[in-house]
Amino acid sequence: MRRYVLGRLLQLIPVLFLVSLIVFAVMRLLPGDPALLMLSGAEGGAITPERLNELREQMGLNEPLAAQYLNFVLGALQGDLGSSIRFQVPVIDLILDRFGSTFELAVAGLFLAIAIGMPLGMIAAARQGGWIDSLCMTLSYIGSSMPVYWLGLLLVLVFSFTLHWFPSAGGGSFEALILPAFTLGLLSAGVLARLIRSSMLEVATEDYMRTARAKGLFPRLIIFRHGLKNAMIPVLTMIGLQFGALLAGTVVTETVFSRPGLGRLIVDSILSKDYPLVQGAILFLAVVYLLVNLAVDLAYALLDPRIRYGN
């Protein structure tokens, strides 16, 4: 088991290199010059070529691209993601400051997705072909096909402006988390419900399920002990992927609900060409995403003894 985890951690290295290369390249390919943007923002009219060149020199933008990339990677390897151009503070501080809010939102969203999607999918599978099944699946399609911003606005309209149950914007409090978490979670709930349904139905045709029935076990025991654990194996992989989607999905949700999260920070810093901040934040998210998926794979091994005692 320990060797497995170590092996998996080693596999992360090339992936992270690739991610760093892609963010770096994409940022440089986007039109716009951070030095120019900064000058026009901060000092108004007087932009002289000398001033511009001085600033670019200061920001390391005059060095060859390869050297810039190397600096970025070498720094990152030592845990130094550089300083934000816009805020003039270390990137890592900004990220850690904002990440809590984003992580909280993604976790709450995932929790809701599981809490809603699992029962929905299992009930649908148990009532396959009946009207309850159709109802559950219709709900799941509606849930997963609504655009995030639209669903967010709808929830705000109903539960905030009309009913005054929850605040429409801001962060920090539990009440403020509820609407954004539903906005994010309902989407994944729909996807999960369908997957759990099909996974349960597939498992139901397995020989060991027939054995369980031949043993005269209670139907509930057959579904939960014999069926669910097997059905969860593919679902777990999906949950890992969904968590990535949730982390990414926070960008829109944070914008709709004006939450001070990492997603919004990234969007803002892309617009202001804050190279170090964007690179650092994306790399950070990539690490989080990969670690979550590693955790999912470990949970997978817990569910399936054939992997745990892997050859």
């Binding site: 397995e206 060991y208 027939r210 031949a214 005269g216 097997n230 569910l303 399936d304 003894p305």
Partner: peptide, 23 residues
């Protein structure tokens, strides 16, 4: 149900697939 497995037992053909792999 109460009779299955108690008064009538059943053995299946394929022991590779008829036992639950995760229990």
């Amino acid at each position: 149900r109460a009779m299955r497995g108690k008064d009538i037992g059943m053995v299946f053909q394929d022991p590779m697939t008829s036992l639950n792999p995760v229990l």
